[in-house]
Write a protein that binds this DNA or RNA. Structure first.
Lengths: 360, 360
DNA sequence: GTGAAAGCGCTAACAG
DNA sequence: CTGTTAGCGCTTTCAC
């Protein structure tokens, strides 16, 4: 059976025939290595152009063992946070001569394992992943990749069970600073929306470490930062002020509604993601409360919306693009053969103070 | 020279050896075709598992001619609009058994051409693209792909120079409806932020067609919808009320500032993208004006922010995920051999009326 | 039911 | 400087 309409793309062999030279000569000419006489060089180039030759990268990869492709695994490419990471990742990758194969996992570990297997099967040269695994969870799929000489770089979320370059932000410190700024403005009852997802929340501050172990690195760090700030100012931890629901906006609203109905409701809320913040705003509105008069809010992730809001929102801005770019550069370096110890890079998020926080 | 630490991934040949059978038998067993006796079947499976065998998809693609990979080309994966498309695209692709290779072009045609060439080189089975080309521009790179039997599907932006499945939204109709709703509320001076990017704006309504030809499909359609509404209500087109600047927030602000300073300033602004809308809001703020009291606004692209804003924003919500999913399904169908005429699919965007528009 | 052999398009020694 | 020769790992006839 003949394929398609017949217009099979020309192969290197055909170019060689057309130019009347051997295949190796064509490979050398087009590959720009070895040496070729000016004369034949021109003939080859001419023939290639005439035939509209374009190399089959698959075949090339087959023999070189390199695909010039990076695998990227995140929870959801539609989420602005990951989209930002992806954006920085994509440009840094391209700069380094790599393309990216992206897989979303919806934060499901099983999907993540499949994703990694798929990427490995497609022979990507390296993997950048924001793993859905808990910080101390075993990650055999990632170790598998490493064993197969496929470098893995962790982005946004660290993992203790594996030795790998890691690029994260200063979640804990910036959260402590943000919550601290709330406390310094007189707030003592501070809601924390979206602690780590768990159905076994910490009942007191001493419990935190245990909770944090089994959950997402970034979530855990933020909760720790929150507790740091509380302890530093001698404020007691109240488990009722921390939500552990799934990260959907309605859940954030539900959680805040619950806090607002407490006998001693929060006067400020720290929201750890964009949707947690909009969800918080909805809750206030439902109770007829306003920000910052009744409740101060600090959100996460800056955007042009945050500033034009009324009030403009105080947020923790994460350097998403920079994270993505750093991660890309890290894998690329590993692919290139860099053998130093795994580097743990912490990029700084910054607190942007605007009008959604007021003194109490 | 030995590669890596030696742990080369096991090949099919090794599995065959370990199981004491021929390679074809292993291929049949693992590939699930042909027939294999229950006995040998088990041995093969056991050997494969024991060695931790995973097929090299590259080699497989090499012989089958299929990579199970879709190429996706957009301006910027970090842009919420494209991120939304990508999200829908990714899940539909995965459902169909495909992975996606994503390339951002920053809206540059040269980058786009390179991107397509790269994808073709990597032998993707199909391409989904939101092209940076003007609606009537020649697109040799895309025709090239088609000639190479690589189906191309256009998403968000149609193109007249090529025959291809296309998935877009009802930009023109929804814009006409939105602008119409403004007119019906008494507005006659309506700013249009981000008409097609050009330095040769239409000077009157009759000029529009020409301007539209050379620019992005979606931008053109929206401008046409704007003019439709004006004409329908007998309002004269004023070129000073249409901005043609580059789509960055600061440019939107600048443009609106200019309109606001007109002797006869707009009482309403229609912003065709999320950033155009936030930019508009900034401009109002700078002039000490407020929305909707002084100026009504209709924006584009819904998000949780739009609703929690104060005032909540009236917007045109685009079905980004659905667009991405439809595009993915379209390419997949073509790859599977579907040969019908190119389909032009129009998905509906909807006007979500909230509080940023008021009667005049 | 199963194995041997050819070949996908390319690169990488190795001779000449 | 250039052509020949092997493969890369897999699928796919085609005999046995």
């Amino acid at each position: 059976m003949t394929r398609g309409d017949g217009h099979n793309p020309p192969t290197l062999t055909e170019v060689a025939a057309a130019a009347g030279v051997g295949r190796a000569t064509v490979a050398r000419t087009l590959g720009g290595y070895g040496s070729v006489s000016e004369h034949t060089r021109e003939r080859v180039l001419a023939a290639a152009k005439r035939l509209g030759y374009a190399p089959n990268e698959l075949a090339k990869s087959m023999t070189t063992g390199r695909t010039n492709t990076l695998g990227v695994v995140v929870a959801d490419v539609g989420n602005p946070f990951f989209a930002g990471i992806l954006s920085g990742l994509a440009s840094a990758a391209r700069e380094g001569g790599y393309d990216i194969l992206v897989i979303s996992t919806s934060e499901r570990l099983a999907e993540e394992q499949r994703a990694v297997a798929t990427l490995l099967g497609k022979q990507v040269d390296g993997i950048v992943i924001a793993s859905a695994a808990g910080r101390t969870d075993a990650v055999p799929h990632l170790q598998d990749a490493q064993r197969r000489d496929c470098p893995v770089v962790l982005v946004d979320r660290g993992l203790t069970a594996i030795q790998a370059d890691t690029v994260v932000t200063n979640n804990r410190a910036v959260t402590a600073a943000a919550v601290g700024s709330l406390i310094e403005r007189g707030h003592r009852r501070i809601g924390f929306v979206w602690g780590p997802v768990t159905n076994q929340p910490a009942t007191d501050a001493d419990d935190i470490a245990k909770v944090v172990d089994g959950t997402l690195w970034s979530d855990g760090e933020r909760l720790l930062g929150y507790v740091d700030a509380l302890e530093q100012h001698g404020i007691e931890f109240d488990t009722g002020l921390v939500s552990h629901s799934l990260p959907t906006e309605p859940q954030a609203t539900r959680a805040v509604l619950g806090m607002l109905d407490l006998a001693d409701p929060p006067t400020a809320v720290f929201a750890t993601e964009a949707d947690a913040m909009t969800g918080t705003l909805r809750a206030l509105r439902r109770r007829g409360l306003s920000c910052p008069e009744d409740v101060s809010i600090i959100g996460f992730d800056d955007s042009s919306w945050a500033e034009v809001m009324n009030p403009s929102m105080t947020v923790v801005a994460q350097p998403m693009q920079a994270m993505g770019a750093a991660a890309a550069r890290a894998v690329i370096a590993r692919i290139a053969g860099f053998e130093g110890d795994p580097a743990f890079t912490t990029l700084d998020s910054t607190l942007i103070e605007r009008a959604s926080v007021t003194r109490r």
